[in-house]
Design a protein around this nucleic acid. Structure first.
Lengths: 95, 95
DNA sequence: TCGATATTTAGATAATTATCTAACAGTCTA
DNA sequence: TAGACTGTTAGATAATTATCTAAATATCGA
């Protein structure tokens, strides 16, 4: 996990919307694709970028591939972003 | 300030490096440009993107233009990033 | 195994972004 | 005001990224 991949992944509005959807609940690639005005391969491309950035996890369930947030890595990402800006180095923001 | 501009600004490694330099101390455009293996206009372009994203503030001082971190907006940005991931609001994701 | 469904991969094209050179604009000092 | 210095703007090109269509892969159920 690198901040470079993370920020590049987060730089696209479609990908951020996907993350928001997954924040609610895990979804199949097809269900995700339905929400967007773009072809399945295009959405698949975005999912792949999110997966490479380790922001999501993909697991096959029969014919479907279920995407979900990689919450532990996301915690780490937020942590690193705070460190990047020299904020909250001691990890105790949720008091 | 929008997360879209913020993430797009943070997506470039040169711009992140500029922010890191400014985290240490405010610097003129020329001093920033010296650190990079690229022309001044290119660095100027990056500075402009950071300025539009409100991550930095530019102030003229004589012949120089001094860039510094916009710390209040950066606090806000980190806050919004945490909200984006649903962390630090009422937060109960770590089970 | 065949056909249907779900998803990805490959390859092409379009859109966006980074970078360059050349020229312009603001500020200082003599 | 001229000349030097600092920085930006304009316009062109190169590199990257998003998107599309067509084809391939994987799984399921009859």
């Amino acid at each position: 996990m690198t901040l470079d991949n993370t920020f590049k992944a987060l730089a696209d509005p479609t990908r951020r919307e996907i993350l928001q959807m997954l924040n609610d609940k895990a979804l199949s690639a097809g269900d995700i694709a339905k929400s967007f005005n773009m072809t399945k391969p295009s959405v698949s491309h975005h999912l792949n970028i999110l997966k490479n950035a380790e922001l999501v996890i993909a697991e096959r369930d029969g014919q479907n591939i279920i995407y979900s947030l990689n919450t532990s890595v996301i915690q780490e990402v937020v942590q690193q972003i705070m460190e990047f800006f020299d904020i909250g180095e001691d990890d105790n923001e949720t008091e």
